[in-house]
Design a protein around this nucleic acid. Structure first.
Lengths: 137, 137
DNA sequence: AGCTCTAGTCTCGAATTGAGACTGCGTCCA
DNA sequence: TGGACGCAGTCTCAATTCGAGACTAGAGCT
């Protein structure tokens, strides 16, 4: 047995069944969802928008090392998947407000579990990295 | 108020504090951990290794659309971070077994929460995509 | 001698990303 | 009246990353 809780086993079973059932592995819809979440900028952006709605420029300042190009593109992708809502105020200069939808907010529960895990394990990960780099010159 | 549970709020607070404290945003250790998890292949590989240990070739067959190059590289990265253990049997032809470490297994709880969420929401995401594509010609 | 098997590495063209210049258009200040 | 500014992008080009597939070592099998 795996030593994991029953809940985890159930999810694993579901995962295994999902990829078995899906003849085209690449088209697995769970992968489609996970790939978006797994994107370098997506989680960061969802986490930032969870604090409060942001305008385009605010997001750029909140995540200083993202390029405008990727900011635009990631926002579009999140919007397309229904996680983020885009509201345009036809003023000059233009104002655009991005906010999480209910679907986007529903991601916060599993995502915060992951962030929490990351915070708890980062020490172990850092130690593992140092050990690995020491052994592999 | 955000409408989220207190637990999520607490994690968000932690996240916000973490990025505030970190002067070099790019070096935030949580991001380092999340970036690895967020990798296109990492989650898939962890999920596969959670089923049972796999040899290199088995992994390649289990995840048919990964290139050898990325398979090697992702496994190295996961090993470096201490999620995966690599065991070499000095036979010919060589045999190498990859398995999850305790640290790697500890990821299964939050990760399965995410997979579960992906399974539950994929219908809504698919609908959002169709609606978006219809509106944007 | 030649073929097979495994776990990689190497090379090269293709796709993705980053840095930053540029746009449109009203407002503010002179 | 005209010049600079702010905002939310788009466009271009260079750098980085990725995928596909050829190639390697060394023992066993025929």
């Amino acid at each position: 047995m795996t030593g994991l809780s029953g809940e985890v086993d159930a999810v694993l079973d579901g995962f295994q069944r999902a990829i078995r059932v899906e003849p085209n592995f690449d088209a697995c819809p769970v992968r489609g969802v996970l790939d978006r979440i797994g994107d370098k900028w997506s989680t960061l952006m969802v986490l930032t928008l969870a604090l409060r709605p942001h305008r385009f420029g605010e997001l750029k300042r909140a995540i200083p090392d993202i390029s405008q190009r990727m900011l635009t593109q990631t926002l579009r992708d999140l919007q397309r998947d229904g996680y983020v809502a885009r509201r345009v105020f036809p003023t000059t200069p233009p104002a655009v407000e991005y906010s999480l939808t209910d679907l986007g907010r529903s991601l916060m529960t599993p995502l915060s579990g992951l962030v929490d895990w990351a915070v708890r394990t980062r020490g172990a990960v850092e130690a593992a990295r140092v050990a690995f780099d020491r052994e592999n010159v």
